[in-house]
Design a protein around this nucleic acid. Structure first.
Length: 292
DNA sequence: AGACTAACCTGAAAGC
DNA sequence: TGCTTTCAGGTTAGTC
């Protein structure tokens, strides 16, 4: 699911549910690939902590705790974070996207075997759930001063993408430009949907080797990346299969996709059929006429 | 270093 | 209807 916009939308809704509240109890599933920090250790070390701030770096959320530790959250492909209220507390925000009926909301917030992390607070207010069917998501607790390779490897945040940086990173590489845009060490936050969308807006074919992309095109690409990400955040992100906002409602950016998942449909600019190919084991979508 | 592959998981949808 | 195959918004570890 989640790329930078979905993570940012999640962060914004999660922030008031975490910041300033003290964790009273932690429930987890059994040890698995999902837990970079063993769940028993997580349960012990999180209890009694309160959250000072919730930041986002690329596709990671980072909760800063009152003892200097950092809690890293990554949503992987199918991660969902919910803020589940106590009875009588209205949770559904009427922002972008479709809201859930009360029945759907109850269903969405009911913990199941995929609900790997549950935080309860000493104010007995809304709980926070993290569920992830595929377990590609990650949770990690990092001690004060301890380096975090996952964060330290990340390039500049994609919301601040700059053409000059992009050009410098891309100019000597023979791999397809799309693979470079997806490389989190070059630019943090862009995933498969927004890479395709930004390349379409910039008029650059995703298969083009990085070294064949001009400085002017890198400028257009950086602009397109920022624009697409900002617009998606404004619409609540893309809800294509699993992603929902913490209040259970869907994003709406999937309705604004120009090429992603639209193989065979007419290009919104020139009506040529959108083509799909595989680049670096990921599907890529582009207009063969508008993107060269 | 750069390029490329396989692997980690589960569930929904498509194919037969 | 039911079984099999394909596909999915991500990232890392390993090989050459």
């Amino acid at each position: 699911m989640p790329e930078l916009p979905e993570v940012e939308v999640t962060r914004r809704q999660l922030e008031p549910l975490l910041v300033g509240r003290r964790i009273a109890h932690v429930v987890t599933t059994l040890p698995s690939y999902f837990f970079l920090t063993p769940p028993a250790s997580l349960r012990r070390r999180l209890r009694g902590r309160s959250v000072d701030a919730l930041d986002r770096v690329g596709k990671y959320m980072v909760a800063r705790l009152d003892n200097g530790e950092r809690l890293l959250l990554h949503l992987g492909m199918t991660g969902q974070i919910f803020g589940a209220g106590i009875p009588g507390v209205r949770l559904l925000s009427s922002t972008a996207g479709a809201s859930l009926t009360p029945e759907q909301q109850l269903e969405a917030f009911r913990p199941d075997k995929h609900t790997h992390l549950r935080l309860r607070f000493d104010d007995h207010g809304p709980e926070v759930f993290f569920r992830d069917a595929r377990k590609f998501g990650k949770v990690q607790l990092v001690r004060p001063g301890e380096p975090s390779p996952r964060l330290d490897r990340l390039g500049p945040d994609a919301l601040a993408a700059r053409g000059a940086d992009l050009f410098a990173a891309v100019r000597a590489r023979r791999v397809p430009i799309k693979s470079l845009v997806l490389d989190q060490s070059l630019l943090a936050g862009v995933g498969n949907i927004y890479a395709d969308e930004a390349l379409f807006l910039a008029g650059v074919r995703p298969t083009r080797p990085g070294r064949r992309v001009t400085r002017a095109e890198c400028d257009r690409l950086a602009n397109a990346i920022r624009r697409v990400l900002r617009r998606s955040i404004a619409t609540g992100g893309s809800s294509i299969s699993d992603y929902v906002q913490p209040d259970g409602s869907s994003g709406a950016y999937q309705d604004e996709r120009r090429v992603y998942g639209r193989e065979g449909e007419p290009c919104p600019r020139c009506r040529t059929r959108i083509r799909r190919c595989v680049i670096g084991q990921r599907s890529a979508h582009y207009c063969p006429h508008c993107q060269r």
